[in-house]
C-alpha cells in the first residue's frame, strides 16, 4: 500500500494505491485521481514549465529598451513526460530560443527528449 497526495487538482485528495491488487486506488474524489494514483506508482509523469530566451532584432539592448516587456518566453511540455526525464528536458530548454512574434501553442522543440510531447510557447509575444 502506498499513500499519495493527488496533484491533479488543488483539492489534493489523499490516495492509497494497492500494488498487490492491480494498483487499485482508493481515497480519490474523481476518476483523474485514479489515473494519477496508478501512474504515480508505476510510471510517474510531470508537465514541465519553464522559459526560453527571446531573439530580438536589437538583442544587445535590455528588453525594455528593445521595445519588449519580457526577456523570456514561457513554455510548457504539451503533455506530461516521464518524471525521470524532467532534468534532461531542462537541458534542452536551456539551449532553446524563439524568434518573435511567437504565439501560444507554437512548437519550440519537437518531441522533447524523444517523448511524444513538444515544448510549446504559452504566451503571445509580438515584439
Amino acid at each position: 500500500m502506498k499513500e499519495l497526495i493527488c496533484i491533479v487538482c488543488p483539492r489534493g485528495c489523499h490516495l492509497t494505491v494497492d500494488e498487490n491488487n492491480g494498483y487499485a486506488v482508493t481515497g480519490n474524489f474523481c476518476k483523474r485521481g485514479e489515473v494519477y494514483g496508478k501512474a504515480e506508482v508505476t510510471a510517474p509523469v510531470r508537465v514541465v514549465t519553464s522559459t526560453v530566451a527571446i531573439h530580438r532584432a536589437s538583442a544587445k539592448t535590455a528588453p525594455d529598451a528593445a521595445g519588449g516587456i519580457e526577456a523570456r518566453c514561457p513554455v510548457k511540455t504539451s503533455d506530461a513526460i516521464p518524471k525521470h526525464l524532467v532534468l534532461d528536458a531542462m537541458q534542452q530548454i536551456y539551449a532553446a530560443s524563439v524568434d518573435l512574434p511567437v504565439h501560444i501553442g507554437d512548437v519550440v522543440i519537437h518531441g522533447i527528449c524523444g517523448t511524444g510531447a513538444d515544448l510549446v510557447a504559452t504566451k503571445d509575444i509580438l515584439a
Binding site: V8, T49, V75, K123
Partner: peptide, 12 residues
C-alpha cells in the same frame, strides 16, 4: 499571471 508560468490554472 504573466509571471506564474507553471500550470494548474483553470481546472475549475
Amino acid at each position: 499571471l504573466n509571471q506564474c508560468i507553471h500550470n494548474g490554472f483553470g481546472l475549475t
